[in-house]
Amino acid sequence: MKVVRVSIFGFGTVGRALAEIMAERGRRFGVELRIVSITDRSGTIWGDIDPLEAKEVKETMGRLSAWDEYEVFDFSPEELVQEVRPDILVDVSSHDEAFSMYETALKEGIGVVTSNKPPIANHYRELMKAAEEGGAGLFFEATVMAGTPVIGLLRENLLGDDVLSIEAVLNASTTFILTEMERGSSFEKAVEKAKEQGILEEDPSKDIDGIDAMHKAKILHWVAFGQEAEEVEVKGIREVTDARRVRLIAEVSKGRIRVQPKRLSEGSPLLTEGVLNAAVIRTDLLGELVIKGPGGGGKVTASGVFSDILKAASYMKPLR
C-alpha cells in the first residue's frame, strides 16, 4: 500500500471535518494517507499525528499549540513546505496570500489540494505553470460549490464540449439573506441572523458585495475557457429592497463575468434555498446541464477536499 504524507494548512471547521474523514477513510484505493503536520493560527505541529486527537485538542483547547505532545513550529507558509516536505499540501484556510506557498510546493513536485478561492482565482495561470514544471497536481474542487463536483465536471467530463455559458448561484450566504428578506426581514436583520448562525465569512462584505461569488466565477471561467476574463462586473445585494425570487447570480461566458442580483422566474433551477448552490452549464454538444448541491458547510466542503486528496495521491509518481 502506497503511503502518502499529507500536511493540512488551516484547522477550522473544514480542517477538523477533514481530519475526521481521514481518520475514518484514510486507507482507500491502495493508498494510506498519513497526516504529518497541521497548521492553525497558533503554529504548526509536526510528526505522526492522530487526526481525531488533533480535532479534540482544537475543539477543547482552542489551539493546537496547547497540545503538550508536540513541539510547535512558527513556520512561514513557504518554510512549512520546505521543512516538512509532504507529498500533498492541503490548504483549507482563508489565507488570501497562499499563492506563493502553492507555487513553492508545486515546483518541488508536491501536490496541492485547496478549498481556498483567491489564490486559484487570481493566480491560475502561474500555478498551472508551476504544476507543469514540478510534475505535480493542482486540485481545487472545493473552491466552487464545496463538495458538489462542478469543477470535476468541467475539467474531466466535458472535455469534448465547448462551453458556451454558465449561470450559477455560488454563494449560499446571500441566498440565506435574500430568503429571510422574502419572509419579511429587513436586510440588516437578515444579515445579523446570518452572522449569528455562522453563515457569513469573517469579513461579511466578501459575501454581501459579491466578492466571494466573483472569485468562484473567475475559477469557473479559467476552467471552462482556459483564459482570464477580460470583463468582470460585480454588484452585491446591499441595494436589494424587493427580494422576491431574487438570487445573486454569476453569469460566465467567454471573456466576461457578471455577478449581480437577478429576479428569477418561477421554477428556475437557480431559485435555490438554504445552503444549496446550483449551476446551469450550456455547451455546444450536450446542450443544457443543471447541477445542484450543497455549497457550504464543514463536512460538505471537506468531502470535496478529500476526493481531491485521493486524486492527488493517484497523480503522484510511484514511490520508491
Score class of each variant (00 low, 15 high):
Ala121His: 07
Arg41Cys: 02
Ile309Ser: 04
Val81Phe: 10
Phe75Ile: 07
Val163Met: 02
Val14Glu: 05
Pro149Ile: 06
Trp67Asn: 00
Ile291Phe: 04
Arg85Phe: 01
Thr44Met: 00
Gly30Asp: 06
Ile208Tyr: 02
Glu71Ile: 02
Leu89Gln: 09
Ile110Arg: 08
Gly293Trp: 01
Ala229Leu: 05
Lys317Gln: 14
Glu156Ala: 12
Asp50Pro: 13
Glu108Ala: 15
Ser314His: 14
Arg247Asp: 04
Glu230Arg: 13
Glu78Leu: 12
Glu79Met: 13
Ser93His: 06
Met214Val: 09
Glu53Ala: 11
Ser303Phe: 09
Leu271Asp: 07
Tyr315Leu: 08
Thr104Ser: 10
Tyr70Asp: 12
Ala168Ser: 11
Leu264Ala: 09
Asp242Lys: 03
Tyr102Trp: 06
Gly295Cys: 08
Ser265Tyr: 00
Val290Asn: 01
Leu153Ile: 03
Arg263Gly: 02
Val36His: 06
Ile237Asp: 12
Thr283Ile: 04
Leu33Arg: 07
Ile309Trp: 02
Thr174Cys: 12
Arg5Ile: 05
Ser7Asn: 05
Ala98Tyr: 00
Val280Tyr: 02
Gly160Ala: 04
Glu108Arg: 15
Asn277Ser: 04
Val275Leu: 07
Lys2Leu: 05
Pro261Glu: 07
Glu141Val: 10
Arg5Lys: 15
Pro294Asp: 14
Gly30Tyr: 03
Gln82Gly: 13
Ser37Thr: 09
Asp96Leu: 10
Ala131Lys: 11
Ala19Thr: 11
Arg263Pro: 02
Lys193Arg: 14
Asp50Arg: 05
Gly10Tyr: 13
Pro119Lys: 03
Val4Arg: 14
Glu201Arg: 14
Glu230Lys: 13
Leu270Met: 08
Asp91Trp: 04
Phe225Met: 02
Ser303His: 06
Glu202Ser: 14
Leu248Ala: 03
Glu182His: 07
Ser185Cys: 01
Phe29His: 08
Ala136Met: 12
Arg125Ile: 12
Arg85Met: 12
Leu310Asp: 08
Arg238Gly: 03
Ser76Phe: 03
Val72Lys: 01
Thr283Leu: 08
Asp40Met: 11
Met181Ser: 11
Glu156His: 15
Leu276Phe: 08
Ser265Asp: 10
Glu69Val: 02
Arg34Val: 14
Glu192Leu: 13
Gly287Pro: 13
Pro51Ala: 02
Lys117Gln: 12
Ala190Ser: 15
Lys55Leu: 06
Arg63Ser: 10
Pro269Gly: 10
Ala54Trp: 00
Phe29Tyr: 06
Leu289Pro: 01
Gly111Leu: 08
His123Phe: 13
Lys216Trp: 04
Asp209Ile: 09
Leu276Ala: 11
